[in-house]
Design a protein around this nucleic acid. Structure first.
Length: 150
DNA sequence: GCCAACGTTGGC
DNA sequence: GCCAACGTTGGC
């Protein structure tokens, strides 16, 4: 069982959108490190912290879970899609997706500031390599953030 | 809206 | 294979 943090811009796709949709393909991963995580490491039922980025107060907003194995990102094959990538083919796909489902909204959001102010969380990837959009979270970090959200 | 950090591209 | 140029992310 692994723990992850997935970032999304709420104007693009928010946690409430996920609750409404019940499930969504996590589309548009175009970064090799993030791709490697979802292709090689992410497993069905892994836990996800859903993070709202690129807003005034960035924060963890909810818990989600992985609901599919990785599969080729079909948007990369679609010329009319903004995620089209001519270098990704059906024979040799470059990009992958997984599906995610909502689990629950946190009672209270945990802001980036809260996380930065907690010395137990100083090693979080979010703090040190903030640009990575899919990042591993340790069990200890996961539990700490869940504690902070109640 | 700015800009630092950093990932990717492509010429050489 | 280096590295300059360029594009994107995301906090502030």
């Amino acid at each position: 069982m692994n723990y992850w943090l997935f970032k999304s811009e709420p104007s693009d796709y928010s946690f409430d959108d996920l609750i409404n949709d019940k499930e969504t393909p996590w589309e548009g991963i175009r970064n090799y490190q993030a791709r490697n995580f979802i292709r090689d490491k992410v497993q069905v039922n892994d836990n996800i912290l859903f993070y709202h980025s690129n807003i005034k107060t960035p924060h963890v907003v909810g818990i989600a879970k992985v609901s599919s194995e990785a599969y080729p990102d079909y948007y990369a094959f679609d010329k009319s899609n903004k995620y089209y990538d001519p270098k990704s083919t059906k024979e040799n796909p470059r990009w992958f997706m997984i599906d995610v489902q909502p689990v629950k909204k946190l009672n209270k959001i945990v802001t980036l500031e809260d996380i930065k102010n907690n010395t137990n969380l100083k090693d979080m990837v979010l703090v040190n390599r903030s640009r990575l959009s899919i990042q591993p979270v340790t069990k200890q970090q996961w539990e700490m953030i869940i504690n902070m959200s109640s």
